[in-house]
């Protein structure tokens, strides 16, 4: 304690005070969020009497079938959505990696989805996937001359679990494309062209160069995308809230428990479980990456 204090003193505490208000604000809210989340999750309310601490709320949530279903759906949302984000981001990054005439313009254009508010994108998908008369239904039933008929009857997109969550995922992936793209593009740009040349001189074909040179060098930026995007997928709220109201993910379940059922304890317990899911996914992913790295370095 005294040693730390000495250090701070040497750095002239009287010059560091402007940091304090912001620090108090942020750390204060951190304490509030943490304390309320734990406090509410570990409280149980019955007939106006609050019991604390107890695991009854958590137990009630965990045994709830709707919660289990939401947890499973959210896990699927993460497992399918994260690779999709990576694939779409990689596609856009590869397009921008080339040299062509309107490259700067196209680059700016590719950032637009990020600038459109999520609620607006969700609203647009709400309109486009309308039933029976939305653009997508007209398109897929072959009502436009330029597109073949794939369906023979319109689909009620928002009325089906798979499609409603699928559209939510499309919206989420579309909106976040620029983030994945930028991270992957900076990864691509960081590759030394000398390596590419050296591989070619040694007779490596295009496929070998991609698999043996580009891909290994892209691992850091690709794992950054996977990690960041999987966290985002876990916590997604707005798209499923607007487009898949009847089929909750963890995020939308928190909202309906809190606002519709007035169950702040249960909502907090789900929120705490959501945080836990994110922490576990992150640790799992990092340890897998570490394992792979060690294995690759040894052989």
């Amino acid at each position: 304690m005294s040693e730390a204090w000495q250090k701070v003193k040497r750095f002239k505490i009287h010059e560091v005070w402007p940091l304090l208000p912001a620090a108090v604000y942020l750390v204060g809210f951190l304490v509030i969020v943490g304390a309320y989340l734990v406090g509410l999750s570990l409280s149980f309310e019955k007939n106006g009497v609050t019991v604390f601490p107890t695991l009854r709320t958590v137990a009630a949530v965990v045994s709830n079938t709707e919660f289990r279903h939401a947890l499973l759906d959210t896990a699927l949302f993460v497992i399918v959505g994260t690779p999709l984000e990576l694939a779409v981001g990689l596609f856009l990054a590869l397009v921008l990696y080339q040299q062509f005439r309107f490259r700067n313009f196209v680059r700016s254009l590719f950032l637009v989805p990020l600038a459109v508010p999520a609620l607006v994108t969700a609203t647009l998908l709400f309109i486009l996937f309308d039933y029976p008369g939305g653009h997508v239904n007209f398109l897929l039933t072959g009502k436009y001359a330029f597109f073949p008929a794939i369906l023979h009857a319109p689909v009620n997109w928002r009325g089906s679990e798979v499609f409603a969550l699928g559209i939510s995922m499309i919206g989420k992936v579309w909106r976040d494309m620029p983030i994945s793209m930028l991270i992957l593009l900076s990864g691509l740009n960081a590759i030394d062209p000398e390596l590419f040349d050296a591989a070619r001189t040694m007779g490596a074909g295009l496929r070998t160069r991609i698999w043996r040179v580009v891909l290994p060098l892209m691992i850091p930026s690709m794992s950054a995308v996977i990690l960041l995007r999987s966290i985002e997928m876990w916590k997604e709220f707005i798209f499923p809230f607007i487009l898949a109201g009847k089929y909750p993910l963890l995020g939308t379940l928190i909202e309906s428990m809190y606002n519709d059922w007035g169950n702040s304890n249960g909502a907090s317990a789900v929120a705490a479980i959501l945080v836990l899911c994110i922490v576990v996914t992150t640790l799992l992913f990092l340890s897998i990456m570490e394992f792979l790295r060690r294995k690759l370095v040894r052989t």
């Binding site: 309320y36 509410l40 709220f237 809190y258 945080v275």
Partner: peptide
């Protein structure tokens, strides 16, 4: 460490931190 401390409240998902803040 200080920077991490300052942003750590934002590491909670919005939908998770909104409940405690609303209750507060």
């Amino acid at each position: 460490l200080l920077l991490l401390g300052l942003i750590s409240v934002r590491l909670f998902p919005d939908i998770a931190s909104v409940i405690p803040i609303t209750e507060f």
